[in-house]
Computed example of a mutant assay.
Amino acid sequence: MERRYEIGLLLLRITFGLIFFVHGLAKFQGGIEKTAGFFSSLGLPGFAAYPVAVIELAGGLAIIVGLGTRIVSALLALIMLGAIFTAKLSAGFIGGYELDLILLAVAVHLLLSGSRFLAVDSLFTRR
């Protein structure tokens, strides 16, 4: 793989992971019970807030270091689909789901391509 492409994926992976890490952290710092209440107000089971917050927090960190990038990206893509269709779609594109849509696209890109440059995963695979 070309070095410029690898560096681009690294930057994408770190930024993407940081965004989700901070979102997961905010769910815990702001009171996970509030997030559970928000989920319930959308008609979702409130307890779903817990695995979502853990996936965002731990998954964001895993993505940053490049551990399980494809698996975590798949989980985050599912979370983004859920967010778009349960919370954001009714607000429209601008001010609604546009940011979730780009995060979904990044998740799918990392799911399909992976990211090995400066990644823990590269320690476990052969080139």
Rank of each mutant, 00 (worst) to 15 (best):
R3P: 15
R4E: 12
E6P: 06
E6M: 11
G8D: 01
L10R: 15
L11I: 15
T15N: 08
F16E: 14
H23W: 14
H23E: 05
A26F: 15
F28H: 15
Q29P: 00
G30E: 03
G30A: 02
E33L: 09
T35P: 03
G37D: 06
S41E: 11
P45V: 09
G46M: 07
A48V: 14
A49I: 01
A53D: 01
E56G: 00
L57Y: 14
G60R: 12
L61C: 08
I63T: 15
L67H: 02
L67S: 01
G68V: 02
T69Y: 09
R70Y: 08
S73Y: 09
A77D: 11
L78R: 10
G82H: 10
A83Y: 12
A87E: 07
A87K: 11
L89S: 05
A91F: 08
F93S: 13
F93I: 14
F93E: 13
G96F: 02
G96T: 07
E98P: 02
L99S: 06
L99F: 12
I102E: 02
L104V: 07
A105L: 03
A107C: 05
V108T: 02
V108A: 00
V108S: 00
L110Y: 12
L112K: 06
S113G: 08
G114E: 11
S115K: 00
R116H: 09
L118I: 04
A119I: 09
A119M: 11
D121S: 03
F124K: 05
F124C: 04
T125M: 14
R127N: 13
R127Y: 10
